[in-house]
Design a protein around this nucleic acid. Structure first.
Ligand SMILES: [Mn+2]
Ligand SMILES: [Mn+2]
Ligand SMILES: [Mn+2]
Ligand SMILES: [Mn+2]
Lengths: 222, 222
DNA sequence: AGATTCTTTTTGACTCCTCAAAATACCCGG
DNA sequence: CCGGGTATTTTGAGGAGTCAAAAAGAATCT
């Protein structure tokens, strides 16, 4: 019943509130959805009328329980589809986001369940993003990033917070995939540079900004 | 670039002209698309302006080469998706048409190619409908139907010309699937009844209308 | 032919989503 | 406390697709 547009608005409210304030600004939404701010204001008012969001004029917007339900369902579809495209169809992980952006709106619950089963009920997608459960639980753990973690310790990548094709392609070429083992060998805050050593591809330098997009955890006993 | 709506219009013009006149009436299109005839007239004029169809006012509409290209591409997506849903996800063949109706508009060419490969480049979908090739060739062979074929001869079902859920579910329950072997044991034109004997499910009676939807060919040497 | 019926086209209106540009409210430094 | 700058909201308009109802055209029957 919710149109693709509505689903996209709700999904992005969820995404933006996951990674930041509980109140999402019109500007941030406009940027994420690639529309002008006036459009967002208008749509948000409509969504509020339908009880999908709570709008605090001039301050921001927040999902209602109903809106959150929809958003989580769309996000689940998005991430399961991405997983399918990479794991089954062997598509490049840098390209699946775009595809999933469309498919998330036309996958029925039945197809979703079967995909989920086919994939073995994964709990993260190819980028390490957690997949909401059927029941609407979203495990969003807090991890260190390559910009903030302790240096000189064995780490494993758990998630890449980025969906731009270029970044992902670059990351893949340098072995920076979820599951990869590496450690930070140097961090120069003045230069804004982080140097890593991966098991697979040797030594790499990243900007702090880029490093901040890569989530890691301490490597458990090998 | 073509919207889902445009794609649906073009696909149905193709479908309707496959199975009948070369000129498709507004009324037939309205029925197929589940909109009111005035809407079709309006849309058809717009499509004609874009060079996708040729409109002969008061008589009907026909695809241009451009329109046919689009229609075939949508149809290829539709039928490959149906095949995927049945063969890989093991969905009920009576339900896949509805799903494909949406998915056909959001499958990229890249995903399509990979699906095609995964499925082993099938040339018909689960209902026996021919899948247009990548190059846009659509093999549409003329077959006899259970209402018109010779009786008392071994036959094999090649195609079911029907996508209604109820009909397909019923057909499946009686073993009337593409590939099934059977023969016509009696045909009573007065009563409008055809009686069959299938290898799998024994003796069944069908209305002439229903029998006309089931395409068959003479069974080759067993 | 004349009247009746069916199909197609036209007209006017509506929903959904969007933008450009103007108006408004808010925040922050001086 | 005032002036600018920034974010948000409002306003007016337009594209895409649809319907209801009226008008027009064709075909069919008597
Ligand atoms: Mn989307
Ligand atoms: Mn992802
Ligand atoms: Mn469709
Ligand atoms: Mn089919």
């Amino acid at each position: 019943m919710a149109t693709s547009t509505v689903e996209n608005y709700l999904k992005h409210v969820l995404l933006l509130s996951e990674s930041g304030e509980t109140l999402v600004s019109m500007g941030a939404l406009a940027l994420a959805l690639d529309v002008v701010p006036g459009t967002v204001t208008t749509m948000v008012k409509a969504l509020a009328d339908e009880g999908l969001v709570e709008h605090q004029p001039r301050h921001g917007v927040r999902l209602t329980p109903d809106g959150r339900r929809v958003a989580l369902s769309v996000l689940r579809k998005h991430r399961l589809v991405e997983t399918f495209l990479v794991n089954v169809l062997k598509m490049d992980w840098s390209k699946v986001h775009e595809e999933a952006e469309q498919l998330e709106h036309v996958i029925s619950d039945e197809v979703l369940d079967r995909l989920d089963a086919l994939l073995g009920h994964p709990d993260t997608d190819p980028h390490g993003d957690p997949i909401p459960t059927r029941q609407g639980k979203l495990k969003s753990q807090v991890y260190a990033t390559l910009a903030t973690c302790v240096a000189e310790r064995p780490l494993r990548i758990v998630r890449i917070l980025e969906q731009s094709e270029d970044f992902l392609r670059y990351a893949e070429q340098n072995g920076l995939l979820p599951g990869a083992a590496l450690q930070v060998t140097d961090r120069n805050l003045m230069a804004g540079l982080v140097t890593l050593k991966t098991d697979a591809a040797g030594s790499i330098a990243l900007s702090l900004a880029a490093a901040g997009r890569i989530l890691v955890e301490a490597s458990k006993a090998s």
